[in-house]
Design a protein around this nucleic acid. Structure first.
Lengths: 344, 344
DNA sequence: ATGTGCTCCGTAAACGTTTACGACGCTATA
DNA sequence: TATAGCGTCGTAAACGTTTACGGAGCACAT
């Protein structure tokens, strides 16, 4: 109805010239270009994306795959919405759009991704919640679609990634607790094979070693990344023969359950057991005592994520010359009262 | 590289037949169809979406627009992820896919939607977080793309919508509080013009009228849908000449701030001021006293949302014959200790 | 007069599908 | 035998763009 053809007929010029004028090609007269742009605006003409995609094999969209049933942050505010905002901000600078691809809980993530890739709905991809070995990365390495992973993985490949600094989180939390006199420090980590748990554990072990503290496997407590998981973690900790005096929880939501279990035993977080958790949310200040945790800007993370992805796309590599980005995202410690010094 | 042409050559049949076989057309031999499907699976062939869209003017995708900076539920678990899951489940039954379109905070939602529509990226749309007057609905009414709104609006039009039963929430909360002896009942509603606030207020007024209680405008407290907003609400309530004895908060996240402000004044939620809030999250049970709130299945909501959208699409109207759906989604009350009877 | 280079524009092919149309071979019926 | 009908399949046009190619017109130098 309102294709490029109608536009050309109306101006009595060929569709080739119209296309060139619209796409900013140099070989078109200034006056002609002005007329074309004017008529296009007047008619409300917007190029049909399917035709354009078919011809030039590009869609001007990047995909962000998430798993509906799985919030990587497990945290009481919406991790992804903040990140989307940052990514979208970067993309819109280049007339690209972000489409989020939510994989349903009952579908295999790799198959879903496969479908999205072959569909050619997007030019590039962001995947999140990477696993220790991630078959999606294997898949994407085979195809040649540019992508970046939000989260490291042990799966080989020289793809770009951006990850939260869980190693730093672990190190700084342990340093802080040791400085306050703690020696028996437990950690609560996810029970699935999401990679951040492994990274976190590496940092934990390294920090213990630095302080000359022996690593005790039974102080690593695996539980779901939920309020219930935190409850379980606390329960397991309290029923140990020789309980820890401090704990670092990887998800703030777990802290809620952790507090709850402690309260049930008449114990007080902070006073009886020190607690540090990742990641700050509106809850942190409300919990009593306030939770010592780590803070980050989701939007800034999204911006860096978007820029890093563009840097790996040939068409934008000259604008973002940072090459293959592989870096960790720093976080800031927020002091609460939940990690007081050891008693006595 | 792996188009329908290669598939046809490999089988020594025409691409027309291959296409018909893949699309389940009747005029193809069973044996031929079997061979085509087998070869397609083996080659990992998936039709190019651009070519298909161009030819038949359809994209096999539906969009779900969200606003990154704005979580409609304002609640401590991820409202949208649950809904996505349900929608995707329905769509995949018909080989449709869901793409989420996150509008950045710095972009005008109507312009963003306009761009997505003309891009012809999707066949149908879901919009969420509807406002009292919503220019997106005006826009979509002009175009002829099928859509459904998650949330009512005062903007005219005979489009389908599905909305949470905020009127029911208000009515049942007030009934419950009145039965416990409360007469001065405040409400905390959003300060922006999102429509659910108006619906909620309507229910509130109707319930008061039923119980013969006069409506007092200063018992309607407007605040942001955040923890801080809840804090403000409590503060405003406490500094009133004649404070209310109960409050109904529209966002659970506000309850956290509300509790916090009460605690600062040495007051106890439930005992000194009754609190009911919408919507249940992992927090509800943890708060002390546990929050009386409303529960719903996000996934089931998503399923109904998806089915209602399909019902308004000509191509699926025979499978989902419910016509133009306009209904509210029921919610279940969950009892906590936060809404005890009035003192004395 | 011829050649060269430049600017601007039209022509037509290509991208990967779907589908209207018609052709072919076969069977059944008159 | 002729005709009609059916099942199956090939042919080619169409969807809306972009872009390689070449040509027309002109200016300028040789």
């Amino acid at each position: 109805m309102k294709g490029i053809r109608q536009l050309a007929e109306r101006l009595n010029i060929s569709i080739g010239t119209v296309s060139r004028a619209l796409n900013g090609r140099p070989d078109v007269n200034d006056e002609t270009r002005r007329r074309v742009l004017e008529a296009a605006a007047e008619m409300g003409y917007v190029p049909n994306q399917s035709g354009r995609s078919l011809r030039q094999g590009t869609t001007n969209a990047v995909g962000f795959m998430i798993e509906s049933g799985f919030d990587v942050a497990g945290n009481p505010d919406n991790f992804f919405l903040g990140v989307f905002d940052g990514v979208q901000t970067v993309l819109s600078r280049h007339h690209l759009d972000l489409v989020v691809l939510p994989c349903a809980t009952d579908e295999d993530p790799t198959q879903y991704l496969q479908r999205m890739v072959t569909r050619r709905l997007v030019d590039a991809l962001i995947i999140s919640a990477t696993h220790r070995t991630d078959r999606r990365i294997e898949l994407l390495n085979k195809t040649h679609i540019p992508f970046i992973a939000l989260g490291r993985s042990a799966t080989p490949g020289n793809h770009p990634w951006l990850d939260l600094d869980f190693e730093g989180v672990a190190n700084r939390a342990i340093d802080r607790l040791v400085a306050k006199g703690h020696r028996r420090i437990a950690v609560g980590v996810p029970s699935n094979d999401i990679n951040l748990g492994f990274v976190f554990l590496d940092g934990y072990k390294a920090a213990l070693a630095r302080h000359g503290i022996a690593f005790e496997p039974n102080l690593v407590i695996r539980a779901p990344s939920s309020e219930q998981g935190g409850y379980q973690t606390a329960h397991e900790l309290l029923t140990m023969p020789e309980p820890a005096t401090a704990v670092v929880l990887i998800y703030e939501l777990m802290a809620i359950g952790f507090y709850r279990r402690l309260n049930e035993s008449g114990l007080s977080p902070g006073r009886d057991i020190a607690v540090i958790a990742f990641r700050e949310s509106p809850l942190s200040r409300f919990l009593s005592p306030a939770l010592t945790c780590f803070r980050m800007s989701l939007r800034d993370l999204g911006i860096t994520l978007g820029e890093s992805l563009l840097a790996s796309m040939p068409a934008y590599a000259d604008i973002y010359p940072q090459g293959i980005v592989r870096r960790v995202w720093p976080m800031e410690l927020v002091e609460g009262g939940s990690d007081q010094a050891i008693k006595g």
